[in-house]
Design a protein around this nucleic acid. Structure first.
Lengths: 185, 185
DNA sequence: CGAATCGTTGAAAGCAGTCAACTAGGGTGG
DNA sequence: CCACCCTAGTTGACTGCTTTCAACGATTCG
Protein backbone atom coordinates (compact mmCIF):
# COMPACT_ATOMS: atom_id res chain seq x y z
CA UNK A 1 0.00 0.00 0.00
CA UNK A 2 1.23 3.46 -0.87
CA UNK A 3 0.50 6.98 0.16
CA UNK A 4 1.17 10.00 -2.01
CA UNK A 5 3.22 12.75 -0.45
CA UNK A 6 3.82 15.00 -3.45
CA UNK A 7 2.49 15.36 -6.94
CA UNK A 8 -0.59 14.05 -8.71
CA UNK A 9 -1.43 10.48 -9.63
CA UNK A 10 -4.10 9.26 -11.98
CA UNK A 11 -5.70 5.89 -11.19
CA UNK A 12 -7.29 4.21 -14.17
CA UNK A 13 -8.51 0.96 -15.61
CA UNK A 14 -7.37 -0.05 -19.06
CA UNK A 15 -10.22 -1.47 -21.13
CA UNK A 16 -8.11 -3.55 -23.49
CA UNK A 17 -9.48 -1.73 -26.49
CA UNK A 18 -7.31 1.28 -25.85
CA UNK A 19 -9.93 3.19 -23.94
CA UNK A 20 -9.49 3.86 -20.27
CA UNK A 21 -11.66 4.71 -17.34
CA UNK A 22 -9.98 7.08 -14.96
CA UNK A 23 -11.18 6.11 -11.52
CA UNK A 24 -9.63 8.79 -9.39
CA UNK A 25 -7.14 11.60 -9.24
CA UNK A 26 -5.00 11.20 -6.15
CA UNK A 27 -3.75 14.28 -4.33
CA UNK A 28 -0.96 14.47 -1.74
CA UNK A 29 -2.01 13.03 1.60
CA UNK A 30 -4.25 10.42 0.01
CA UNK A 31 -3.79 6.71 -0.46
CA UNK A 32 -3.12 4.99 -3.75
CA UNK A 33 -5.66 2.21 -3.89
CA UNK A 34 -6.98 0.20 -1.04
CA UNK A 35 -4.91 -1.53 1.61
CA UNK A 36 -4.57 -5.30 1.32
CA UNK A 37 -5.97 -5.38 -2.14
CA UNK A 38 -4.19 -8.53 -3.27
CA UNK A 39 -4.33 -7.78 -6.93
CA UNK A 40 -4.64 -4.14 -7.84
CA UNK A 41 -7.30 -3.87 -10.43
CA UNK A 42 -6.37 -0.37 -11.37
CA UNK A 43 -3.23 1.06 -12.90
CA UNK A 44 -1.63 4.34 -11.97
CA UNK A 45 0.38 6.92 -13.80
CA UNK A 46 2.03 10.00 -12.45
CA UNK A 47 1.16 13.48 -13.65
CA UNK A 48 4.45 15.27 -13.36
CA UNK A 49 6.88 14.43 -10.58
CA UNK A 50 5.59 12.54 -7.56
CA UNK A 51 6.94 11.12 -4.36
CA UNK A 52 5.24 8.17 -2.76
CA UNK A 53 5.55 6.55 0.61
CA UNK A 54 5.22 2.81 0.91
CA UNK A 55 3.68 0.88 3.76
CA UNK A 56 4.82 -2.77 3.83
CA UNK A 57 1.78 -4.97 3.93
CA UNK A 58 2.99 -7.06 6.86
CA UNK A 59 3.73 -4.04 8.96
CA UNK A 60 0.35 -2.57 8.21
CA UNK A 61 -1.27 -5.82 9.17
CA UNK A 62 0.61 -5.91 12.48
CA UNK A 63 -0.41 -2.35 13.16
CA UNK A 64 -4.00 -3.20 12.43
CA UNK A 65 -3.98 -6.31 14.59
CA UNK A 66 -2.42 -4.37 17.42
CA UNK A 67 -4.74 -1.39 17.48
CA UNK A 68 -8.44 -1.56 16.70
CA UNK A 69 -8.40 2.14 16.02
CA UNK A 70 -6.23 1.52 12.99
CA UNK A 71 -8.71 -0.96 11.64
CA UNK A 72 -11.55 1.48 12.08
CA UNK A 73 -9.51 4.13 10.31
CA UNK A 74 -9.03 1.93 7.29
CA UNK A 75 -12.69 0.99 7.24
CA UNK A 76 -13.69 4.62 7.31
CA UNK A 77 -11.33 5.23 4.45
CA UNK A 78 -12.97 2.39 2.56
CA UNK A 79 -16.42 3.81 3.23
CA UNK A 80 -15.41 7.15 1.77
CA UNK A 81 -14.03 5.36 -1.26
CA UNK A 82 -17.29 3.55 -1.80
CA UNK A 83 -19.27 6.73 -1.43
CA UNK A 84 -17.01 8.59 -3.87
CA UNK A 85 -17.34 5.80 -6.38
CA UNK A 86 -21.10 5.81 -6.09
CA UNK A 87 -21.30 9.57 -6.52
CA UNK A 88 -19.24 9.15 -9.65
CA UNK A 89 -21.71 6.52 -10.82
CA UNK A 90 -24.50 9.06 -10.39
CA UNK A 91 -22.59 11.56 -12.46
CA UNK A 92 -21.69 9.14 -15.22
CA UNK A 93 -25.17 7.70 -15.48
CA UNK A 94 -27.30 10.82 -15.23
CA UNK A 95 -25.42 14.00 -16.03
CA UNK A 96 -24.93 15.82 -19.30
CA UNK A 97 -21.48 16.75 -20.50
CA UNK A 98 -21.83 20.25 -19.11
CA UNK A 99 -22.98 18.98 -15.73
CA UNK A 100 -20.11 16.52 -15.55
CA UNK A 101 -17.52 19.14 -16.36
CA UNK A 102 -19.04 21.65 -13.98
CA UNK A 103 -19.20 19.14 -11.16
CA UNK A 104 -15.63 18.09 -11.83
CA UNK A 105 -14.27 21.62 -11.80
CA UNK A 106 -16.08 22.56 -8.59
CA UNK A 107 -15.12 19.31 -6.92
CA UNK A 108 -11.52 19.59 -8.02
CA UNK A 109 -11.37 23.14 -6.75
CA UNK A 110 -12.80 22.03 -3.41
CA UNK A 111 -10.28 19.22 -3.10
CA UNK A 112 -7.40 21.56 -3.84
CA UNK A 113 -8.76 23.88 -1.17
CA UNK A 114 -8.22 21.17 1.43
CA UNK A 115 -4.49 21.24 0.66
CA UNK A 116 -4.08 24.92 1.26
CA UNK A 117 -5.35 28.32 0.25
CA UNK A 118 -6.38 28.49 -3.38
CA UNK A 119 -7.73 31.20 -5.58
CA UNK A 120 -10.46 30.94 -8.15
CA UNK A 121 -7.75 29.99 -10.59
CA UNK A 122 -7.83 26.22 -10.75
CA UNK A 123 -4.77 24.48 -12.14
CA UNK A 124 -5.38 21.41 -14.27
CA UNK A 125 -2.03 19.63 -14.45
CA UNK A 126 -3.48 16.49 -16.01
CA UNK A 127 -4.09 15.98 -19.70
CA UNK A 128 -7.40 16.64 -21.35
CA UNK A 129 -7.69 12.96 -22.11
CA UNK A 130 -7.37 12.11 -18.43
CA UNK A 131 -10.23 14.43 -17.53
CA UNK A 132 -12.28 13.13 -20.43
CA UNK A 133 -11.71 9.51 -19.41
CA UNK A 134 -12.63 10.41 -15.85
CA UNK A 135 -15.91 11.94 -16.95
CA UNK A 136 -16.75 9.36 -19.59
CA UNK A 137 -16.44 11.87 -22.41
CA UNK A 138 -14.30 12.27 -25.50
CA UNK A 139 -11.58 14.93 -25.50
CA UNK A 140 -13.41 16.73 -28.29
CA UNK A 141 -16.58 16.93 -26.22
CA UNK A 142 -14.62 18.13 -23.21
CA UNK A 143 -12.99 20.84 -25.26
CA UNK A 144 -16.34 21.95 -26.66
CA UNK A 145 -17.85 21.99 -23.19
CA UNK A 146 -15.01 24.12 -21.87
CA UNK A 147 -15.56 26.54 -24.71
CA UNK A 148 -19.28 26.61 -24.04
CA UNK A 149 -18.78 27.29 -20.34
CA UNK A 150 -16.40 30.08 -21.20
CA UNK A 151 -18.92 31.65 -23.55
CA UNK A 152 -21.45 31.57 -20.73
CA UNK A 153 -18.92 33.46 -18.58
CA UNK A 154 -18.85 30.62 -16.06
CA UNK A 155 -15.16 29.91 -16.48
CA UNK A 156 -12.13 31.43 -18.11
CA UNK A 157 -9.65 29.15 -19.82
CA UNK A 158 -6.08 29.74 -18.70
CA UNK A 159 -2.86 28.33 -20.11
CA UNK A 160 -2.66 25.44 -17.64
CA UNK A 161 -6.04 25.48 -15.98
CA UNK A 162 -9.26 27.44 -15.70
CA UNK A 163 -10.58 30.24 -13.55
CA UNK A 164 -13.98 29.79 -11.99
CA UNK A 165 -15.98 32.95 -12.56
CA UNK A 166 -19.52 31.70 -12.17
CA UNK A 167 -19.55 28.15 -10.86
CA UNK A 168 -20.17 27.71 -7.15
CA UNK A 169 -20.52 24.87 -4.73
CA UNK A 170 -24.25 24.85 -5.31
CA UNK A 171 -23.57 24.20 -8.96
CA UNK A 172 -21.89 20.97 -8.04
CA UNK A 173 -25.01 19.93 -6.18
CA UNK A 174 -27.11 21.12 -9.03
CA UNK A 175 -24.98 19.14 -11.39
CA UNK A 176 -25.01 15.81 -9.70
CA UNK A 177 -28.09 15.91 -7.56
CA UNK A 178 -30.75 18.34 -8.46
CA UNK A 179 -31.93 20.02 -11.54
CA UNK A 180 -35.28 20.29 -13.22
CA UNK A 181 -34.71 17.45 -15.57
CA UNK A 182 -31.83 15.34 -16.58
CA UNK A 183 -29.96 16.04 -19.71
CA UNK A 184 -31.30 17.40 -22.94
CA UNK A 185 -32.79 20.88 -23.23
CA UNK B 1 -25.68 -2.68 9.85
CA UNK B 2 -27.94 -5.25 8.31
CA UNK B 3 -27.59 -8.47 6.43
CA UNK B 4 -30.18 -9.84 4.06
CA UNK B 5 -31.31 -13.39 4.70
CA UNK B 6 -34.19 -13.67 2.25
CA UNK B 7 -35.56 -11.71 -0.66
CA UNK B 8 -34.14 -8.97 -2.85
CA UNK B 9 -33.30 -5.40 -1.91
CA UNK B 10 -32.58 -2.49 -4.20
CA UNK B 11 -30.13 0.15 -2.97
CA UNK B 12 -30.50 3.51 -4.65
CA UNK B 13 -29.79 7.21 -4.39
CA UNK B 14 -32.61 9.65 -4.96
CA UNK B 15 -31.54 12.57 -7.11
CA UNK B 16 -34.16 15.05 -5.88
CA UNK B 17 -35.49 15.57 -9.36
CA UNK B 18 -37.36 12.30 -9.32
CA UNK B 19 -34.63 10.32 -10.99
CA UNK B 20 -32.75 7.67 -9.11
CA UNK B 21 -29.48 5.88 -9.42
CA UNK B 22 -29.72 2.26 -8.38
CA UNK B 23 -26.40 1.43 -6.80
CA UNK B 24 -26.77 -2.26 -6.15
CA UNK B 25 -29.15 -5.17 -6.01
CA UNK B 26 -28.62 -7.06 -2.78
CA UNK B 27 -29.07 -10.82 -2.69
CA UNK B 28 -29.48 -13.06 0.37
CA UNK B 29 -26.23 -13.51 2.25
CA UNK B 30 -25.00 -10.03 1.40
CA UNK B 31 -24.78 -6.90 3.50
CA UNK B 32 -26.98 -3.87 3.13
CA UNK B 33 -24.58 -0.98 2.96
CA UNK B 34 -21.29 -0.63 4.74
CA UNK B 35 -20.70 -1.21 8.42
CA UNK B 36 -20.24 1.90 10.55
CA UNK B 37 -21.43 4.19 7.85
CA UNK B 38 -22.71 6.92 10.13
CA UNK B 39 -25.15 8.37 7.71
CA UNK B 40 -26.34 6.04 5.04
CA UNK B 41 -26.19 7.90 1.81
CA UNK B 42 -28.31 5.40 -0.03
CA UNK B 43 -31.90 4.37 0.39
CA UNK B 44 -33.22 0.87 0.10
CA UNK B 45 -36.48 -0.66 -0.99
CA UNK B 46 -37.52 -4.27 -0.91
CA UNK B 47 -38.46 -6.18 -4.04
CA UNK B 48 -41.09 -8.55 -2.73
CA UNK B 49 -40.86 -10.00 0.76
CA UNK B 50 -37.55 -9.84 2.57
CA UNK B 51 -36.14 -10.78 5.91
CA UNK B 52 -33.19 -8.91 7.29
CA UNK B 53 -30.86 -9.55 10.16
CA UNK B 54 -29.56 -6.65 12.19
CA UNK B 55 -26.12 -6.35 13.76
CA UNK B 56 -26.05 -3.75 16.54
CA UNK B 57 -23.25 -1.32 15.86
CA UNK B 58 -21.77 -1.56 19.34
CA UNK B 59 -21.64 -5.31 19.25
CA UNK B 60 -20.02 -5.26 15.85
CA UNK B 61 -17.45 -2.83 17.11
CA UNK B 62 -16.67 -5.02 20.11
CA UNK B 63 -16.31 -7.99 17.83
CA UNK B 64 -13.97 -6.07 15.63
CA UNK B 65 -11.89 -4.80 18.50
CA UNK B 66 -11.64 -8.29 19.90
CA UNK B 67 -10.58 -10.12 16.77
CA UNK B 68 -8.35 -8.65 14.08
CA UNK B 69 -9.70 -11.24 11.69
CA UNK B 70 -13.07 -9.58 11.83
CA UNK B 71 -11.60 -6.25 10.87
CA UNK B 72 -9.80 -7.78 7.94
CA UNK B 73 -13.04 -9.40 6.86
CA UNK B 74 -14.81 -6.09 6.79
CA UNK B 75 -11.98 -4.44 4.90
CA UNK B 76 -12.05 -7.17 2.32
CA UNK B 77 -15.77 -6.63 2.00
CA UNK B 78 -15.16 -2.94 1.49
CA UNK B 79 -12.55 -3.63 -1.17
CA UNK B 80 -15.00 -5.74 -3.11
CA UNK B 81 -17.56 -2.96 -2.82
CA UNK B 82 -15.12 -0.45 -4.23
CA UNK B 83 -14.18 -2.76 -7.06
CA UNK B 84 -17.81 -3.42 -7.90
CA UNK B 85 -18.57 0.28 -7.92
CA UNK B 86 -15.62 0.97 -10.19
CA UNK B 87 -16.62 -1.76 -12.61
CA UNK B 88 -20.04 -0.18 -12.71
CA UNK B 89 -18.38 3.14 -13.46
CA UNK B 90 -16.67 1.54 -16.42
CA UNK B 91 -19.98 0.22 -17.67
CA UNK B 92 -21.85 3.48 -17.22
CA UNK B 93 -19.15 5.59 -18.81
CA UNK B 94 -18.18 3.45 -21.77
CA UNK B 95 -20.78 0.89 -22.74
CA UNK B 96 -23.67 1.12 -25.16
CA UNK B 97 -27.18 0.22 -24.07
CA UNK B 98 -26.83 -3.27 -25.50
CA UNK B 99 -23.53 -3.83 -23.75
CA UNK B 100 -24.92 -2.62 -20.45
CA UNK B 101 -27.93 -4.87 -20.64
CA UNK B 102 -25.87 -7.86 -21.74
CA UNK B 103 -23.35 -7.36 -18.98
CA UNK B 104 -26.13 -6.96 -16.45
CA UNK B 105 -27.92 -10.14 -17.50
CA UNK B 106 -24.76 -12.23 -17.47
CA UNK B 107 -23.61 -10.77 -14.19
CA UNK B 108 -27.01 -11.22 -12.60
CA UNK B 109 -27.13 -14.80 -13.76
CA UNK B 110 -23.68 -15.43 -12.31
CA UNK B 111 -24.65 -13.92 -8.98
CA UNK B 112 -27.78 -16.07 -8.80
CA UNK B 113 -25.60 -19.09 -9.54
CA UNK B 114 -23.69 -18.47 -6.32
CA UNK B 115 -26.91 -18.96 -4.36
CA UNK B 116 -27.68 -22.35 -5.80
CA UNK B 117 -28.20 -24.23 -9.02
CA UNK B 118 -29.83 -22.12 -11.70
CA UNK B 119 -30.90 -22.79 -15.24
CA UNK B 120 -30.50 -20.52 -18.22
CA UNK B 121 -33.83 -19.02 -17.23
CA UNK B 122 -32.97 -15.89 -15.30
CA UNK B 123 -35.70 -14.44 -13.11
CA UNK B 124 -35.93 -10.67 -12.96
CA UNK B 125 -38.08 -9.92 -9.92
CA UNK B 126 -37.32 -6.21 -9.94
CA UNK B 127 -39.13 -3.60 -12.00
CA UNK B 128 -37.92 -2.46 -15.36
CA UNK B 129 -37.35 0.98 -13.93
CA UNK B 130 -35.01 -0.45 -11.32
CA UNK B 131 -32.89 -2.14 -13.94
CA UNK B 132 -32.96 0.97 -16.09
CA UNK B 133 -31.89 3.18 -13.20
CA UNK B 134 -29.14 0.71 -12.40
CA UNK B 135 -27.81 0.85 -15.95
CA UNK B 136 -28.31 4.56 -16.47
CA UNK B 137 -30.92 4.06 -19.16
CA UNK B 138 -34.57 4.93 -19.62
CA UNK B 139 -37.14 2.15 -19.32
CA UNK B 140 -38.04 2.64 -22.97
CA UNK B 141 -34.45 2.10 -24.04
CA UNK B 142 -34.20 -0.97 -21.83
CA UNK B 143 -37.35 -2.40 -23.35
CA UNK B 144 -36.11 -1.76 -26.87
CA UNK B 145 -32.76 -3.33 -26.04
CA UNK B 146 -34.44 -6.43 -24.68
CA UNK B 147 -36.47 -6.68 -27.86
CA UNK B 148 -33.35 -6.23 -29.96
CA UNK B 149 -31.46 -8.93 -28.05
CA UNK B 150 -34.41 -11.27 -28.49
CA UNK B 151 -34.46 -10.67 -32.22
CA UNK B 152 -30.78 -11.54 -32.32
CA UNK B 153 -31.66 -14.83 -30.58
CA UNK B 154 -29.43 -13.95 -27.66
CA UNK B 155 -32.21 -14.01 -25.09
CA UNK B 156 -35.82 -15.04 -24.83
CA UNK B 157 -38.19 -12.83 -22.89
CA UNK B 158 -40.18 -14.76 -20.31
CA UNK B 159 -43.11 -13.59 -18.19
CA UNK B 160 -40.98 -12.70 -15.16
CA UNK B 161 -37.48 -12.84 -16.51
CA UNK B 162 -35.43 -13.82 -19.51
CA UNK B 163 -33.73 -16.95 -20.77
CA UNK B 164 -30.15 -16.67 -21.90
CA UNK B 165 -29.79 -18.42 -25.24
CA UNK B 166 -26.67 -16.82 -26.62
CA UNK B 167 -24.99 -14.65 -24.00
CA UNK B 168 -22.05 -16.18 -22.19
CA UNK B 169 -19.57 -15.12 -19.57
CA UNK B 170 -17.26 -13.89 -22.27
CA UNK B 171 -19.97 -11.54 -23.41
CA UNK B 172 -19.85 -9.84 -20.05
CA UNK B 173 -16.14 -9.33 -20.55
CA UNK B 174 -16.72 -8.25 -24.07
CA UNK B 175 -19.32 -5.84 -22.85
CA UNK B 176 -17.37 -4.08 -20.18
CA UNK B 177 -13.78 -4.65 -21.16
CA UNK B 178 -13.04 -5.47 -24.71
CA UNK B 179 -14.53 -4.76 -28.02
CA UNK B 180 -13.23 -3.10 -31.14
CA UNK B 181 -14.60 0.31 -30.38
CA UNK B 182 -16.88 1.88 -27.87
CA UNK B 183 -20.46 2.53 -28.49
CA UNK B 184 -22.14 3.48 -31.73
CA UNK B 185 -22.36 1.15 -34.72
C1' DC C 1 -64.90 -6.27 -14.03
C1' DG C 2 -62.65 -1.75 -13.95
C1' DA C 3 -58.81 1.06 -12.89
C1' DA C 4 -54.30 2.08 -12.28
C1' DT C 5 -49.76 1.03 -13.04
C1' DC C 6 -46.25 -1.26 -15.75
C1' DG C 7 -44.35 -2.32 -19.96
C1' DT C 8 -43.97 -1.96 -24.99
C1' DT C 9 -43.87 0.28 -29.41
C1' DG C 10 -43.64 4.37 -32.60
C1' DA C 11 -41.87 8.88 -34.21
C1' DA C 12 -39.07 12.81 -33.68
C1' DA C 13 -35.34 15.53 -31.66
C1' DG C 14 -30.97 16.36 -29.42
C1' DC C 15 -26.57 15.47 -27.46
C1' DA C 16 -22.45 13.30 -27.75
C1' DG C 17 -19.38 10.48 -30.72
C1' DT C 18 -16.71 9.98 -34.88
C1' DC C 19 -13.85 11.52 -38.53
C1' DA C 20 -11.07 15.06 -40.33
C1' DA C 21 -8.50 19.24 -40.58
C1' DC C 22 -6.37 22.91 -38.38
C1' DT C 23 -3.82 25.50 -34.52
C1' DA C 24 -0.90 25.81 -30.57
C1' DG C 25 2.75 24.45 -27.69
C1' DG C 26 7.08 22.10 -26.38
C1' DG C 27 11.22 20.02 -27.33
C1' DT C 28 15.09 18.89 -30.26
C1' DG C 29 18.72 19.54 -33.38
C1' DG C 30 20.98 22.16 -36.67
C1' DC D 1 18.56 31.34 -31.85
C1' DC D 2 15.71 29.69 -35.17
C1' DA D 3 13.52 25.97 -37.80
C1' DC D 4 11.43 21.89 -37.55
C1' DC D 5 8.66 18.21 -35.83
C1' DC D 6 5.64 15.87 -32.93
C1' DT D 7 2.04 15.80 -29.79
C1' DA D 8 -1.86 17.96 -27.48
C1' DG D 9 -5.74 20.55 -28.03
C1' DT D 10 -9.38 22.90 -30.68
C1' DT D 11 -12.90 23.45 -34.10
C1' DG D 12 -16.13 21.90 -37.80
C1' DA D 13 -19.42 18.71 -40.18
C1' DC D 14 -22.00 14.77 -39.86
C1' DT D 15 -23.87 10.37 -38.16
C1' DG D 16 -26.53 7.98 -34.94
C1' DC D 17 -27.75 6.25 -30.42
C1' DT D 18 -30.46 7.43 -26.73
C1' DT D 19 -33.85 10.31 -24.96
C1' DT D 20 -38.24 12.40 -25.11
C1' DC D 21 -43.06 12.63 -25.99
C1' DA D 22 -47.07 10.04 -27.03
C1' DA D 23 -50.12 6.26 -27.54
C1' DC D 24 -51.06 1.64 -27.18
C1' DG D 25 -51.22 -3.28 -24.84
C1' DA D 26 -50.64 -6.02 -20.63
C1' DT D 27 -50.83 -7.06 -15.96
C1' DT D 28 -52.10 -6.68 -11.31
C1' DC D 29 -55.08 -5.48 -7.69
C1' DG D 30 -59.15 -3.77 -5.54
Amino acid sequence: MFGLSEGLVCLHKALRDGRRQVVKFVLPGEFLGMPFMELYKVSAHAVGAVSVCGFPRDELRRLMDASPGMARLLINFAIREVDLAQEQQVLLANASAEQRVGAFLVGWHARLATLGPVSKAVPLPMRRRDIADFLGLEPETLSRTFASLEQKKLIRIDPKGVTLTGLARKDARRCCIVPGRRRHR
